[in-house]
Simulated assay, not measured.
Amino acid sequence: MATALLIIDMQSIFTSMTTHALPNILTLIAYFQRTSRPLIFTQHGHSKQELTPPFKNQLVRKWGPDGSIAIGSADWALQPAIADAVKKAGYPVVGKNTYDAFMNSGLEGMLLQQKVERVVVCGVMTDCCCDTTARSAFNRGFETWLVGDACGSASEEQHQAGLKAFGYAFGPVVETEGVERALEGL
């Protein structure tokens, strides 16, 4: 079964939320590279048009234009270690403007083209974009794993709530070391 790693929104604005997750994400990236498995990154942002009234994007309405990430801004940039990984190997970066990386993007087509049947999700925020994207993958028929120690959120409480909710109804919550162990024989 082909397995892809989805690295969600590892952007500068979220650096403080990913202190503990980043080393594990880099471990997963290295493992997927070494084993020639697909890696896909996402990058959340809003266009100038979306940040100008009237606000048609639901997230911009919720967080306001000042609480939203503008495409091209310093906050929008990928964290340096992640940007290096993308640049070195030319991995795809899927732009998104909502929590679900499958919405309004070609992500599903990219996965299907590579015959992916399982996705491993990590990144930020556990309880928003990671959870929503992982649930969406599950609902599209992909076996879906959420990597608990390779996700981060605004608080430990939110992080744990996201992991608990996903694990209850959608798929396993695994740790970085467990991903490598589980995929070794595949």
Rank of each mutant, 00 (worst) to 15 (best):
I82H: 01
A2N: 15
V94W: 13
L186G: 10
D9Y: 09
H44Q: 08
A70G: 01
H20F: 06
K87F: 14
A182F: 05
E175A: 08
K88F: 05
A70Q: 00
S155N: 12
G90T: 09
S68N: 10
E157V: 09
Y99K: 03
S68C: 10
K96Q: 11
L183R: 03
L6A: 01
G90N: 10
A77R: 08
I69E: 00
D100F: 06
P53K: 14
T18M: 11
I71V: 15
G185T: 12
I8S: 05
F138N: 11
P53N: 15
N139I: 04
R37Q: 15
G67A: 03
C130E: 13
Q113E: 15
P23H: 14
V93D: 13
E180I: 05
N139S: 12
C122L: 01
I8W: 08
G148C: 05
F102Q: 05
W63V: 07
T15I: 04
V116G: 03
A70N: 00
S36W: 10
A2L: 09
Q160R: 03
L28A: 12
F14K: 02
F14T: 05
F14M: 09
A83M: 04
N24G: 12
G95V: 02
M10G: 03
G72Q: 01
E117C: 07
E177G: 14
F102K: 05
T35I: 01
T126S: 03
A81L: 12
L163R: 02
V179D: 07
F166A: 06
E177H: 13
S105A: 04
F102H: 06
K164P: 02
K115L: 08
Q160D: 03
S68Q: 06
N57V: 04
Q11A: 01
S155M: 11
L28F: 15
N57P: 10
T132P: 02
V94M: 08
L28S: 12
T3I: 08
E177N: 12
E50Q: 08
L146F: 11
T144D: 06
A74D: 13
W63N: 12
P92N: 14
G67S: 07
V124H: 00
V121W: 04
